[in-house]
């Protein structure tokens, strides 16, 4: 992974940095809480945590405007929080309760928000890629300048449908940013063991799609690359590929024995590349915030997450009649 890079003369405002700090911290604390609730048996099934990758969604959401769409895989909690969905509704969906975004019928992997233009939450690896291109197709058809962010991982990048989609997206100039969240492991299979391609974004060149690799642990680098990609798409010259070099600290899901990498590797990433620590450093060293200021933010975030957890426990299970609803519109 490339060393962390920060614009030399940072003219990022205090408010902007504090915003990133808050949003990334919210995702991390939320996910830590979800891990706890899973351990307590309150969350069932699969639960894929986003810890470590927070800079990707937070940096890209900073480039989005109202009307832009996003779609991702089953590792979706961070994306939902970053686009402004209510932590209570997300957590209550994890616990399978009536107050969840899908009334408890979707679960961790399947949540949607029409209001926030969040289109899921998809459990079949790679399926969200053509779906995302389809969202962009709809915007192009309607003649607006909205952009879709279609997120997928390094694992999904080996699915055939991704390349079928690249071909059509470029052929039809769809306004979609393909965001490859390369966290280096497809479940337990490292990049090295699954492909000889030196990089994933370069595969787009075969279809004529522009793209680049980005330090996905640096929210400012993510935002800068995102602005470029979004501008290309809004100008009708999409699609664009961003390969976000990132890292997940936790296992693939809660039941991951993590035999495929060392503790030292994970610890090194945490120590040297952590996205939240990076912004924290910028805030403190830049004189934008004191330790006390940051502690106050930590406290706020903790309160929001605790409130979400309480809501997710107190919200009742869905009524039994819900079994038979929402099958047909």
């Amino acid at each position: 992974m490339a060393p962390r890079k920060t614009p030399e003369k940072s003219n990022i405002s205090r408010d902007e940095l504090l915003g990133y700090y808050r949003e990334m911290l919210l995702i991390r604390r939320f996910e830590e809480k979800a891990g706890q609730l899973y351990g307590m048996g309150l969350i069932g099934g699969f639960c894929h945590l986003y810890i470590g990758q927070e800079a990707v969604v937070v940096g890209l959401e900073a480039t989005a405007k109202d009307g832009d769409k996003r779609i991702t895989s089953y590792r979706d909690h961070g994306h939902m929080l970053a686009c402004g969905m209510d932590p209570k509704g997300v957590m209550a969906e994890l616990t399978g309760r009536e107050g969840g975004y899908s009334k408890g019928k979707g679960g961790s992997m399947h949540m949607f928000s029409k209001e926030k233009h969040f289109y899921g939450g998809h459990g079949i690896v790679g399926a969200q890629v053509p779906l995302g291109a389809g969202l962009a197709f709809a915007d192009k058809y309607m003649g607006n300048d909205n952009v879709t962010f279609a997120y997928f991982g390094d694992g999904a990048a080996n699915q055939g449908q991704v390349y079928e989609t690249y071909n059509m997206a470029e052929l039809w100039n769809l306004p979609v940013v393909f965001v490859i969240e390369n966290n280096q492991y497809a479940m337990g299979t490292s990049m090295k063991r699954s492909t000889k391609s030196p990089s994933l974004w370069e595969r787009g060149a075969a279809y004529g799609i522009k793209g680049e690799a980005v330090d996905g642990m640096d929210v400012l680098a993510v935002k800068a690359a995102g602005e470029k990609a979004v501008a290309v798409c809004r100008a009708g010259q999409g699609p664009y590929i961003l390969e976000m070099m990132t890292y997940r600290y936790r296992g693939h899901s809660m039941s991951d024995p993590a035999k495929y990498r060392t503790r030292e590797e994970v610890q090194k990433m945490r120590d040297e590349k952590d996205a939240i620590e990076h912004v924290r450093d910028l805030l403190v060293q830049g004189g934008h915030a004191t330790e006390d200021d940051l502690k106050a933010i930590d406290k706020d975030i903790k309160a929001i997450v605790n409130e979400a957890a309480e809501f997710s426990k107190e919200s009742p299970e869905p009524a039994l009649s819900e079994l038979w609803t929402d099958i047909y519109a």
Partner: peptide, 16 residues
């Protein structure tokens, strides 16, 4: 490219 264009069409339907 049935897998791909079906996915694109389904996405377009989700978007209205």
């Amino acid at each position: 490219t049935e897998h791909g264009f079906t996915g694109v069409a389904v996405g377009a339907a989700m978007a209205g």
